[in-house]
């Protein structure tokens, strides 16, 4: 949001997309016709597209629109493009130099430098956040998906869950959704999902899924946690789904000690498998429902 603030934008409507390559020029023209005074597009940097050249295709399209708008007599700043990629930062005061982040980084962006602290090369970092959940001292700060802010948004549900549970007897489920995998779930009317007591939290890549956040979800009263990631070999980043799978398996061992291992699941799907996510979520809800009845 700081990006918009820097542009002097105060009131805005946010439209989130999996890829800017998805937007057709007529959309922008229609928006302007509706009376919207300014359009700001925030695509990835040129070489960072998770899909096939989405940012390059859109760049060509944007330039054409900009030209067209100029000819139609619109001002220069009516259509702005800001290239921005969320990156990861390291709090060197907390870093203990263990090297776990340097090992897991799929882009080799992190090095341990003397005197034993991690240093990140932001030109190479692509902001997947795989390093954050392996840091033993929580020193890694993925922009927009910081440990503290995610943790706060989970614990904020605490009172809501208590209220919901006293009103209805249905279980509450938290879904960690990789933004590249089941993004159509994010498009979905949240009302539909919250009717079933499902809360969706978006993460930049399933490798960002943090065992602490999962534990916090159970601690705050969620009855089940589902992690949604892409199918094997379809990760838009670097095998983030594999990392998430390993993490879930090792966390299940810990959870078994407090009888929660059946309440955590990972599912592999993406929008191209139409309806799969709905099937997963409804069977998961059913399973959690029957578990809650028994306990």
């Amino acid at each position: 949001m700081n990006v918009l603030k820097n542009q002097g934008v105060k009131n805005f409507i946010l439209l989130r997309l999996p890829c800017v390559g998805r937007v057709s020029p007529t959309f922008f023209l229609k928006a302007l016709a509706l009376g919207i005074t300014r359009l700001v597009v925030i695509p990835c940097e040129e070489d960072y597209c998770r899909f096939k050249e989405g940012s390059r295709i859109s760049t060509r399209r944007f330039l054409a629109i900009q030209n067209l708008l100029h000819q139609l007599g619109f001002g220069k700043d009516v259509f702005t493009i800001i290239r921005k990629l969320r990156k990861v930062h390291i709090d060197t005061n907390r870093c203990i130099g263990c090297g776990d982040c340097a090992y897991i980084c799929p882009y080799d962006a992190i090095k341990i430098v003397t005197p034993g602290v991690a240093q990140i090369n932001l030109n190479v970092c692509s902001g997947c956040g795989a390093c954050a959940p392996v840091c033993p001292s929580i020193a890694i700060i993925p922009e927009g998906f910081e440990y503290e802010s995610m943790s706060r948004s989970i614990s904020n549900y605490n009172s809501f869950i208590r209220k919901m549970k006293s009103e209805r007897k249905t279980p509450m489920v938290l879904v960690f959704c990789c933004q590249w995998s089941e993004f159509s779930a994010l498009d979905k009317n949240q009302g539909d999902l919250s009717k079933d007591n499902v809360v969706i939290l978006e993460i930049p890549c399933s490798s960002r899924v943090d065992s602490l956040h999962i534990l916090e979800a159970f601690y705050s009263g969620f009855d089940g946690v589902l992690i949604v990631t892409c199918k094997e070999g379809e990760c838009k980043l670097e095998e983030g789904n594999e990392k998430a799978k390993e993490r879930v398996l090792s966390l299940k061992k810990l959870l078994a000690q407090v009888n929660l291992e059946n309440r955590l699941e990972i599912c592999f799907t993406s929008p191209k498998y139409v309806g799969e996510f709905d099937t997963y979520i409804s069977s998961f809800l059913e399973k959690i429902g029957s578990l809650s009845k028994n306990s």
Binding site: I96, D100, P136, S137, I138, L212, L215, F218, Y219, V258
Partner: peptide, 21 residues
Amino acid sequence: PPRGVREAKTYAMLVEMGGKL
């Protein structure tokens, strides 16, 4: 494996939840 603040927080939640059981 490193037993820093992440491990401590993990244990805190496990111990509290285990205690509740």
